[in-house]
Design a protein around this nucleic acid. Structure first.
Lengths: 150, 150
DNA sequence: TGCTATTTAATTGTGTACAACTAAATAACG
DNA sequence: CGTTATTTAGTTGTACACAATTAAATAGCA
């Protein structure tokens, strides 16, 4: 072991353990990592899974609509969606009524993923070791804060 | 407007709005974005800022120690630290007592950033529109959940 | 109508994240 | 002591994220 470095005078608010941002950032990545082995069986990444959550509900959405719901821009979505298109899970086409928009449509193979994904949420929940009530409280708080910022 | 697509039968647990993971993921990115203009004045990215939070407290840490505290691996840290080294904010050297370890040391220019960063936390807090009590509750809950997973 | 402003995706470049692998150093053990 | 196992960073390749820019289409308006 190296010698422990002497603690210097640091603003408490600048200590990692007092941050809100850090556990948020770390927890987000940890949760993504918890999804990874489950999603790997579906050949999906976590952001791709989020796109499918929306498409399973809506069948088709524009890139703009996906971006609004996921808070992601075209710089992230365009290459992601092209990869899903290559796998024949979605189609991309310009809206004939407004050629600026690109409509993303769920293809049969993409819809078929829904059935296989059904068990994912409960498997994740089991790993969290929290009660449904705690889950709800936290979800509500995070959504509230998100609405303040977004 | 395109025609609204008819809602299909979707497992409630597979709806985006019922997820815990999504607000966590989105909020983490939104908070990072809130930091961005403040950190830009320090020429820092958000993960680089987290590294400095630790180095301002400890002056020197190994890559392993940084990785343990930030839950990041060398694949992320090595290039990030090399960029900080190029700016002469930190130094990287092998530990002579264990040549496998790389010691990251804060250089004067890196320490000088601390003073300029002091106002960052309060400026972020102001944007959150929550009370200190709510801040504390949320921070505790997130840390608890993080400990369950990490 | 004709011109300008806005909207929408795509592109480009930088910087994370992370899985999988490599290489070097050290620890552990017979 | 020598051999094997483990630890530690670094490397490679893939996939986000996002700022900034570009280009095409549409809206707005004089």
């Amino acid at each position: 072991m190296r010698k422990p470095t002497s603690p210097s005078v640091v603003h408490p608010a600048l200590q990692l353990e007092n941050q809100l941002c850090f556990p948020l950032y770390a927890l987000s990545r940890m949760i993504t990592k918890a999804y990874q082995p489950l999603l790997q069986e579906l050949d999906l990444t976590y952001p791709q899974y989020l796109v499918f959550l929306l498409l399973w509900e809506h069948q088709e959405l524009t890139v703009k609509e996906l971006g609004e719901k996921l808070l992601l821009d075209s710089g992230t979505l365009t290459p992601l969606l092209k990869r899903l298109e290559q796998k024949q899970w979605i189609s991309r086409r310009r809206d004939p009524r407004d050629e600026r928009s690109v409509i993303i449509e769920l293809l049969p193979a993409g819809r078929a993923l829904h059935e296989r994904a059904c068990k994912v949420p409960e498997q994740i929940f089991a790993q969290l070791n929290i009660t449904p009530a705690e889950f709800e409280t936290l979800r509500t708080q995070l959504n509230t804060l998100l609405n303040h910022l977004a």
